[in-house]
Design a binder for these strands. Structure first.
Lengths: 211, 211
DNA sequence: TTTATTTACGAACGGTCGGTCGTTTTGTAG
DNA sequence: CTACAAAACGACCGACCGTTCGTAAATAAA
């Protein structure tokens, strides 16, 4: 019996399954994810997956949680560590996010963006979960912006939710266009926010130079 | 024999088929489009579709062309008619685009955005066609921005491709978030570009007041 | 009216999908 | 070694997919 109760052979713990499922779901779509192919990739039988997740939908929800965890570990945490507060922290989040996709950390682009567009017109538990994730993310960005106002980096008249929307839109568009138009989209996304923040900033905040 | 060669019964011309296929493809995904369901919607048999399009892929490509035509008629042309040149034309394109989705002209959001995210990781003819459409669209937006520099509305130092990217990103993010976060996303998208353009504009260009 | 041709249809094909079940294998305890 | 329970598997199910084909109906030509 392994520490998580069921899976025994080799390295096939629950998290190992999700580690293999996430890139698959990112490339083929969260709904296009085939349990047969996933089982083949893991070298186990398809019915084994049903022993641990009762249905495909339950596994899909678990994949969402897994993606959220990876996003927290590889993007949010490093960005928060890069800058303590204010506008520089806003920039760090934007830049770390772009770097995550620029270096092709996940094949197929952004898991959350893909899943959002896939389920935007399909009500159900998955859509609800994705909606909650998006709301959380926008609240997080808005909070960062509000903090940059508190520190005096941004003018008090700044609309936190509005600026958060701008940051999000630049990032989303970059991961959408990059596979088609190439790395120049990342340059656009970086340059646009850099220009916007330096124009807004009240204090002489030093943002890193852009190449 | 009807004017377009094959389909005869009722209103089932080629364009009628595509008229029904476009909203279906927008909600279920361009690849998730089921020829069986489409045939049922039209009241014809599934095999009839294969008499006019040799394969599903050919029909999908036709749907892309149809969406492009509708986009041209319902967004680009009205926007171009609303303002002759310069920054006001830029604003007209952005605003007309948002209005198109705000009033739910197509269920399921933006056909092109959905299809892009769906095929970003799937090389093939459909991906190539979508890529060409996106490149055309960005070239179009860049041209509008360059014209606004020519008219003297924008400073000569403005990067046309960069500003085009900003406009596009605001629009894409709006159609992505609207089904989840509601109409407030359209307000954000409008307010952000309004603020950006008025800040950039050299001439006293009168953009419409925002509510 | 008879003939020839086009057009739509129903049935069926092979394939993949999510999901279920009985059996065999594996690990552990006595 | 034996006995027992957990766990992994192969086979199978019904549904849906895109696609093909033989045939019947509708049209046009004679």
């Amino acid at each position: 019996m392994t520490e998580d109760g069921r899976l025994r052979r080799g390295e096939r713990t629950r998290t190992a399954v999700l580690d293999h499922a996430l890139p698959l779901a990112t490339t083929t779509g969260l709904d296009g994810l085939s349990l047969g192919r996933l089982a083949d990739t893991l070298g186990i039988s398809k019915s084994g997956l049903f022993a641990h997740w009762r249905s495909k939908e339950a596994l899909q929800l678990a994949v969402i949680d897994h993606a959220r965890r990876q996003w927290t570990d590889e993007v949010i945490r490093p960005a928060m560590a890069a800058a303590p507060r204010g506008v520089r922290r806003l920039w760090a989040v934007h830049d770390t996010r772009l770097a995550f996709y620029e270096q092709g950390r996940l094949p197929g682009g952004c898991f959350f963006a893909n899943a959002h567009f896939e389920f935007n017109a399909r009500p159900g538990p998955i859509r609800d979960r994705l909606a909650a994730e998006l709301a959380d993310w926008m609240t997080f960005l808005t909070g960062l912006t509000a903090d940059a106002i508190t520190t005096g980096d941004l003018p008090p008249a700044t609309d936190p939710a509005g600026l958060a929307y701008e940051i999000e839109s630049l990032g989303v568009c970059a991961v959408m266009q990059a596979p088609v138009l190439g790395p120049v989209t990342f340059q656009h996304a970086r340059h646009a926010l850099h220009e916007r923040l330096t124009a807004l900033t009240l204090t002489p905040t030093i943002l890193p130079e852009l190449p």
